[in-house]
């Protein structure tokens, strides 16, 4: 059902593009002169309506690539062009060590995004409720747990409907209920004609079937078109003693085992 929704959203968005593709033209980046290149000769484009999953091992440069596209970093060489007007960026770790409460912070960020007070209050209320932050409205940011702070990070990126949403490991630290919300949020952005880039090392992006895949390795970027086949995720509990056998049998049958976790029913 989700896969069908993805397909519909992608088709709908491609019919009403209002943005231009974001271009990465021969982008190189290193943090300091004399240090190795983190990214080399990256050429890619993100079309409106695209969902792109960025993969790569730890330290491969996924976050760097996402920050280049978000406009946080400037390429050492090359350029990123045609970035849309409204960009939402969710960093890997939300910086909770700052002044203010959850709603105070979100309203201030809404104002920074140019929302008038009434519109800012509406947007903040909507996202606070949707992301389950109601109980934390007046809690100071440094007192939030990692997962709750991450929800605030997600909310600030969505206060103004983004044309380009960039999610750096968005599932990290989130509770199961909020993790389930992320694919829906991604689809909403895409349905409006926006595009979404998301990095992931937990295998959660299987929840975004139809997404293109970019792999960062050794400073270079390899792009792959969306997988046309639709897949579903089935969570199966097996006896611990039969774990290895069950995984082997599933793989023999051509299924993709994403991960194995010890606890169940969380």
């Amino acid at each position: 059902m989700l896969a069908e929704a993805v397909g519909n959203a992608c088709t709908a968005s491609r019919n009403r593009w209002h943005n231009r593709p974001v271009h990465l033209d021969d982008v190189w980046l290193r943090y300091h002169r004399g240090t190795p290149w983190v990214l080399q000769a990256v050429n890619a484009r993100v079309e409106p309506g695209d969902i792109v999953v960025v993969l790569g091992r730890n330290g491969a440069g996924k976050s760097t690539l996402l920050q280049l596209i978000a406009g946080v970093l400037r390429p050492t060489r090359g350029r990123v062009s045609d970035r849309p007007a409204v960009v939402g960026w969710v960093p890997e770790r939300f910086p909770a060590d700052q002044a203010g409460t959850v709603t105070g912070y979100l309203r201030a960020m809404a104002a920074v995004r140019g929302l008038r007070p009434a519109a800012a209050a509406r947007a903040v209320d909507a996202w606070v409720q949707r992301l389950g932050l109601d109980a934390f409205r007046d809690v100071k940011l440094p007192e939030l747990s990692k997962g709750t702070a991450q929800k605030v990070g997600l909310a600030q990126a969505l206060l103004a409907p983004p044309d380009l949403l960039i999610l750096d490991e968005p599932w990290e630290g989130l509770d199961a209920a909020t993790r389930d919300l992320v694919p829906g949020i991604v689809l909403e952005v895409v349905a409006r004609g926006g595009s979404v880039l998301v990095s992931d090392h937990r295998g959660e992006t299987v929840r975004l079937p139809g997404a293109a895949t970019w792999t960062v390795a050794d400073g270079t970027l390899t792009t792959a078109a969306p997988d046309s086949g639709q897949r579903c995720v089935v969570e199966v509990a097996v006896e611990a003693a039969d774990l290895a056998g069950a995984v082997a049998r599933l793989r023999e049958q051509g299924h993709h085992v994403l991960r194995v976790r010890e606890e169940v029913g969380s």
């Binding site: 920050q67 978000a70 406009g71 946080v72 007007a85 409204v86 960009v87 939402g88 960026w89 960093p91 770790r93 939300f94 910086p95 060590d97 700052q98 002044a99 960020m109 920074v112 995004r113 600030q156």
Partner: peptide
């Protein structure tokens, strides 16, 4: 220096202008 580095980057993205 009060603002965390990542918050400064978030502000830059939110404003859309360095």
């Amino acid at each position: 220096d009060v603002e965390p580095d990542v918050q400064r980057r978030l502000a830059r993205v939110a404003l859309g202008s360095a």
